[in-house]
């Protein structure tokens, strides 16, 4: 599944991600609102975005079948036409990544990140100036890349062995 790395310590609250997400949403025929939200938290910023969990609790709890994991696309997909606005997914998401919006016909329905891809990257991650958001195509590839980067930093990039090498 899509892998989104969120480093809240790097977030500076610029909200460029929200702006881009909103534009992309509108451009794709959706509502003019962002599916990523930045909030002030204790000592920093909180980034609320869907992690496209492999065992998504929102999908388990959805009573209408609107929220479904789509392993082929690697995302947890929300079918707006099936959503009845029951608030179950809002109650489940530990990241607070599902937002309820009022609809014209009355009532409300859920909205969340749809895992847009633009040349292999999420729009928000492309525009994040600090690297607080980074997206990877699948969890497996991402873990391999992380492992490699960190192994290099700890073992390879050091001149005479560095701190992590035992000799």
């Amino acid at each position: 599944m899509l892998s989104i790395a969120v480093d809240e310590t790097r977030c500076n609250g610029c909200r460029r991600c929200e702006a881009v997400c909103q534009v992309v949403s509108l451009a794709n025929g959706g509502l003019a609102l962002p599916r990523i939200r930045i909030h002030r938290g204790e000592g920093g910023w909180r980034v609320r975005i869907c992690r496209h969990c492999e065992q998504a609790p929102c999908a388990d709890a959805c009573v209408s079948g609107a929220m479904r994991a789509d392993p082929a696309r690697g995302v947890v997909e929300l079918d707006a036409s099936r959503c009845v606005g029951c608030y179950s997914c809002v109650m489940e998401c530990p990241f607070g990544a599902v937002f309820m919006v009022e609809i014209e016909a009355g009532g409300c329905r859920a909205v969340k990140c749809d895992g847009c891809r633009e040349r292999g990257d999420l729009w928000c991650a492309r525009y994040c100036p600090t690297g607080a958001l980074r997206a990877g195509e699948t969890s497996g590839a991402v873990a391999t890349q992380i492992r490699r980067e960190r192994a290099w930093r700890l073992h390879g990039a050091q001149p005479y062995g560095g701190g992590a090498r035992w000799r």
């Binding site: 065992q55 609790p57 990241f95 991402v142 873990a143 960190r150």
Partner: peptide, 18 residues
């Protein structure tokens, strides 16, 4: 575990995978 991959990203050694 809900498979959110936060631990994968957080580990400074890259020691967690899915």
């Amino acid at each position: 575990c809900i498979g959110c991959k936060e631990c994968v990203h957080a580990c400074p050694l890259g020691a967690v995978a899915m």
